[in-house]
Design a binder for these strands. Sequence first.
DNA 1: AAATATTATATATAATAGATATATAAATTT
DNA 2: AAATTTATATATCTATTATATATAATATTT
Lengths: 225, 225
Amino acid sequence: MLDNYILVVDDESRMRKLIKDFLAQKGYSILEAEDGERALEVFEENKNKINLILLDVMMPKLDGWSVLRQIRQESKVPIIMLTARGEEQDELFGFELGVDEYISKPFSPKILVARVEAILKRTNQDQKQVKEYGGIEIDKEGRTVKVDGKVIELSLREYELLTYLVENENIALSRDKILNNVWNYDYYGDSRTIDSHIKKIRHKLGKRGKYIKTMRGVGYKFEVK
Amino acid sequence: MLDNYILVVDDESRMRKLIKDFLAQKGYSILEAEDGERALEVFEENKNKINLILLDVMMPKLDGWSVLRQIRQESKVPIIMLTARGEEQDELFGFELGVDEYISKPFSPKILVARVEAILKRTNQDQKQVKEYGGIEIDKEGRTVKVDGKVIELSLREYELLTYLVENENIALSRDKILNNVWNYDYYGDSRTIDSHIKKIRHKLGKRGKYIKTMRGVGYKFEVK
DNA sequence: AAATATTATATATAATAGATATATAAATTT
DNA sequence: AAATTTATATATCTATTATATATAATATTT
């Protein structure tokens, strides 16, 4: 079974239930939110584990576009917008702003599942596949890491930190960003803590440890080269 | 073989009689229901012996889709939907929700029997297999577990928990997921309960108990290695 | 100007105390 | 009996600290 988390945001509970049922049956774990404000809360609390968001456009309090914009400030999580027919005007708008896909209501479950799967695959969020980065294999389902074919034991934080770096391959990550993403919400600890974990990970990765590059004055970057 | 019970749900008595005759001739035992509500009652009373359900879509009181959904809450019994032509729209819908097969009316007896047999065969085979995982044999039909050839006694929860882990071999399962799958959906118990059962299972599995790995900070994982 | 030395700052490393998660056994409830 | 809860022990992880080392910028000497 996979362990992809999908956040479903819609004000109609019937629609949420419907989507939930389809996706749950396909093995996805579902989180729900009944309006835009709640969506942001749920996202904030679970941002590390959410792999995709299904976002209704028309909602009370805070509409889908506003939610989209706010989430895009800090995250690249794939977002599928659920639109009613006749909202095509807005579509172009949304595409520019970082919408990954549209589904117009009413839709068939087949369409829904197909789009969800396509996007997860495309954005490489699919937990199911084992990915390889220059001798480092990461199996997200099994939560195991192999280096040159041999399993290495990583603690929870080490695993989270490594996968975060790896998922952001070739991107220099500031300590702040790392703290906000690997540690929970506002963590006021010493940022030397990161260094400490980096050291241990590098050691466990052996010669592959050099893929974690120090970006002096900034943070770290994972780069296979 | 000759003890397969099939529940036929259709509001037209002519249709029920027709189906009943075909299938009885092939040696199946038939239970009948003339509407959705009655279907649920009959199912409730005989759920352990019903091997397959033939379910008409259009019925008074409670339609086929509603019956399907309710039964799927608690059972994986194979269900064949009987649809009138022109209901193709809904088909996709149902497939995702756990329909095993469709037969559109009018149908030939040959089609009917062929589909019924195919499905019974398919679902029986799945159940019948005794699977082996590194010295641990699981016989789902017999609900027994052997370790290195010797039967071990497991309580209900222990059996359910072990088979859940084993069926998700090599996948790290969170306590939440385990609770949601092995216990009821809304079980608010202490998650130390899981540990307690894990301990007992490990003990009963003897040296094979080490296949249940502790994923610190996450949960457990079954892994033969 | 080039080479070297100084200084300031950032990161690496190792050791340790404190926090947390799990194992285990025993008690309680169902 | 079985399932769950509770209490305690144990193992493991995490954050912090202190110190060493690396690096970059600047100043000094050749």
